[in-house]
Design a protein around this nucleic acid. Sequence first.
RNA 1: GACUUGGUAGCUCAGCUGGUAGAGCACAUCCCUUUUAAGGAUGGGGUCCUGGGUUCGAGCCCCAGCCAAGUCACCA
Length: 590
Amino acid sequence: MKGNSGVKNDFIYSMALQLSEQEIIRREALAELQELGINPYPAEEYTTNTTIKDILTYYPEDESSFQDVVIAGRIMGRRIMGSASFAELQDSTGRIQLYFNRDEICPGEDKTMYNTVFKRLLDIGDIIGVKGYVFVTRMGETTVHVKEYKLLTKSLRPLPVVKEKDGQVYDAFKDPEQRYRQRYLDLIVNPDVRDTFRQRALMIQSMRNFLLSKEYLEVETPVLQPIYGGAAARPFKTYHNTLDTTLYLRIANELYLKRLIVGGYDGVFEFAKDFRNEGMSRFHNPEFTQMELYVAYKDYKWMMNTVEEMVEKIALDLHGTTAVKVGDKKIDFKRPWKRFTMYGAIEHFTGVDVSEMDEAQMRKAALDMGVELDETMGRGKIIDEIFGEKCEGKLIQPTFITDYPVEMSPLAKKHRELPGLVERFEAICNGKEICNSFSELNDPVDQRSRFEEQIELGRRGDPEAMVLDEDFLRAIEHGMPPTAGLGIGIDRLGMIMTNSNSIQDVLFFPQMRPEKSSSAESEGDDFINAGIPAEWVPVFQKSGYPNLESLKGANANKVFNQLCGLRKKLKLTLSAPKPEDVKEWIEKAG
RNA sequence: GACUUGGUAGCUCAGCUGGUAGAGCACAUCCCUUUUAAGGAUGGGGUCCUGGGUUCGAGCCCCAGCCAAGUCACCA
């Protein structure tokens, strides 16, 4: 360290107790930059005039272009030689090589900006802006010849360095836990992750454009609901102080959107975050996004055609083709999709026609197929079990399953021809449901009795049974036009459209258990309360005494030696304690 | 929730029957200087997830716990 003030030394070395060596070196570089009069975090705008992607795309077509470029981004790699160096710069569009030459960066006598600042004080991860011109190196790589550069942000932590050659990736940053917890790192070093989320955004945009082009109204409805409804699921519960009342985070927005149809809109939709207090897996996150759409004067048959049209358009907008690669399969969203009734699908995959069976016969048939059941299951639930067990996983290409048992669908209208069924369909794709839709039940008398059946299920112990929403009934008693409704899982569809294996890969910040945080900082108060100088607290903690309690009964000589040893090792400017001080501190602990 | 696998340096990972913690990248100092997952030399860097136990001795064995991933169950 040259010319550093004692104050800065103290700051850096007191941090040294918690920091890795590489972090200390970066903090020293930060201090040195400031002494050179360089602001590592400048406030003013840095105006760029192109992007890396544009340079790489258009320069090869016209080598007289890009002779005066300004770009900004993060340093992702450096190859430093004597008077000339190369670096990799990454912006939001891509990565390009930079060429630095000492005598061009520093035309005069003072070579500090090259020798000291660029070579020694900049690191991988720093954000800089550069001005220069584009050329091609002897090795044939399009490169920006830097005439001038400016530090825009100093990075204090080392970045995972991922290297790649001929499609082979070295030292990939791939541990899922770290990728999800520190998504920013994932995004920096794994460019395909940035692409996945761009595609997700494009997918939503495509869907929204489709719906807006039909002149449906995009709306927002409450997330905090006094009565949760619209789906069979367990809710998150919260509490409002002023109202002194329990509220639930919505599990669906269906009942609110239908109220809007009652209110006279012909078509309403919402991209809704829903919350379900249930298990987590690679298909389930506690909060997820669903697009719900309700269109008046339509039925579920119309809605099937609409879903096909919409999803086919999304595939085309994202991939330019209706066929999408998912894992080792190719899924083709080209219309028309295959259609099965639920009974038809079961007969197709099991060879058993269950359509005419009563509950007892059905139970026996299911058990014969090896489907596990429990006592609380009624006829509808058994059909659902058979379907889920024997059919759903086998449906890879997009397929509509229609006409569900009434017991499973308390918000769907009874089938116009087939008793015991409702006018409902789901689209199954890659073995998973991607949407759910019905001709909405608008008969208020029927709706009330369906709710009452749900209440009965709740009494029998079904934790997912729906509760009766009196205001919703009041609304449809005023008359809701015949309506087709749809819920489509945005995350699930996103997984398919981006070829992602888990829902965590299409959510920026999937829910994780909270990280175990070191409580060292708060525990430090104990030391101070016992009269131990604050500047020694981190030294104690580094020595293996996280709190005062841990110091109890410790050998005073040993502690004294540990403290002084660390002081020497880390070149702390603190004055050494006396042995009797240490003894006194330990006595206070015990 | 059950089962399986894993947690070792900033990152990716080795680590023998239980015997003084290793490599590559990154970092530091130096050499070469239009290189490209740059090369060469030297060096620094560790709570082996946590807590117990067995043992003369534990990264490794046993028990408990934490976190994650995979599979299964439930839900979209």
